[in-house]
Design a protein around this nucleic acid. Structure first.
Lengths: 233, 233
DNA sequence: ACTTCGAATTGATCAAAATCAAAATTCCAT
DNA sequence: ATGGAATTTTGATTTTGATCAATTCGAAGT
């Protein structure tokens, strides 16, 4: 297995938070960064752990989740390559991770030092603005998620999710589900059985076509209506 | 009716975002602020309106909500006096309000100019940090809300909500529901009838005592167990 | 104080999705 | 490529909470 490459300036700048950093600052941030590899199922951190680093996913896939007392998990988000997470912990009164994080696939991550980043931000209004933008977008996403969980039934949520993924992946002719159906069901707050039945129904009505994890939207107008609750199949 | 008082420096500084502002900057922000009064049921802004101001609730009470195509509303948050809202719009690519806002009680609000605040933030890292803290806390709240909506059934959600309110109001012997049961049901994503039945059950089992909107937690340990799903009444 | 409208409660019924169970399929690590 | 584990599908049943309906209660404004 090859050695993990440390992040270079180029990679650093893909990180929206740090895109405008000066050379010497960038060097320091990189020198304090740490590359971590974890296998499928391994946990990167637990809810409540001190948040000494914030993370960027280089490759693989992660889930952020909570556990109920009864051991049920609720996935809050799925993290794909190129996306960062845990930034919000930098400014929490108690700097701890508010969720668990585990790998869905073998993953490579870059962890940036939290104290160092805060120091950097102090002298860099541009970086502050980058981060403010990131957090704002994240709030907006969460508001959408809340609306979807509370307002819609299983069918609408699924339709909504398919359309959202289609958009995010650049509206191609066909796209791939980002995770197993079990995990997606969890993300949507429904049982895998319900997801399976709904997807079958959507296929039978000729709205989507699926082949394992590959999805193509046959009648996306109809799907849009379903997502709006205007067309209950 | 007396004239609305314009905000003074003292009031401005209660606003976490602007607590560290210098004198001349504070003067400018104040000069561009606008005080608005709206009556019960009146709408302050609609989802999609250009977000030219961000708001602080001086008195009264507001709801932030979405509407489904079918006209159902989903309350995202209830805003009480001393709390600000809509800050996240400052950094959205399209600066529009992502939700509707209407008054639950006659309310007085201070609206600060969005463009001006962005300008101020550019030259004031301390203010940036204040705002980063505010947004981070808000993300954390939303994660909790998502968990609660997806993971818990009606009973657990209600128990969870009662405990949360108890905490927020400083854990007094007895506290007051922050809004009508109809609105709380909406916030929790359940029907008013279900809320009513659950609260009746909690009272019959001697877990809480209620008088109209006044609540006292008779057996808060038991309530905690219920919220964890360990004790289904 | 009165009136009126919305809020809250209570009961009966219904629909959606969870749960339980078992078989079929797919994934993946070796 | 292959064996074993996990995922997915399908069916039967049960539970939860939504919905419908009727009445009581309470608060806001005249």
């Amino acid at each position: 297995m090859d050695k993990p490459t440390p992040p270079d300036t180029r990679e650093l700048r893909q990180f929206p938070l740090l895109s405008g950093l000066g050379h010497s600052q960038a060097e320091r941030v990189i020198s304090l960064a740490r590359v971590v590899r974890i296998g499928r199922g391994e946990q990167l951190f637990q809810q409540g752990d001190p948040a000494r680093r914030i993370w960027m996913c280089r490759s693989g896939q992660l889930k952020l989740f909570r556990l109920s007392r009864a051991g049920q998990q609720k996935i809050i988000a799925i993290v794909n390559p190129g996306r960062s997470f845990a930034e919000a912990t930098l400014f929490m009164p108690k700097r701890v991770y508010p969720v668990h994080c585990a790998a869905l696939k073998p993953s490579e991550l870059v962890g940036y030092d939290a104290d160092d980043l805060v120091k950097t931000l102090h002298s860099d209004p541009a970086a502050c603005f980058g981060l403010l933008g990131t957090l704002s977008r994240r709030i907006h996403d969460k508001v959408n998620q809340i609306e979807s969980l509370a307002l819609h039934n299983a069918q609408l949520r699924i339709a909504h999710y398919l359309l959202d993924q289609h958009q995010r992946q650049g509206a191609p002719a066909s796209f791939r589900l980002e995770a197993s159906k079990k995990h997606i069901a969890d993300l949507l707050g429904i049982q895998p059985e319900t997801l399976s039945r709904c997807l079958t129904a959507l296929q039978q009505h000729g709205v989507v076509k699926m082949d394992a994890r590959h999805v193509s939207l046959v009648d996306s107008d109809r799907l849009l209506n379903i997502a709006r609750g205007a067309d209950p199949l």
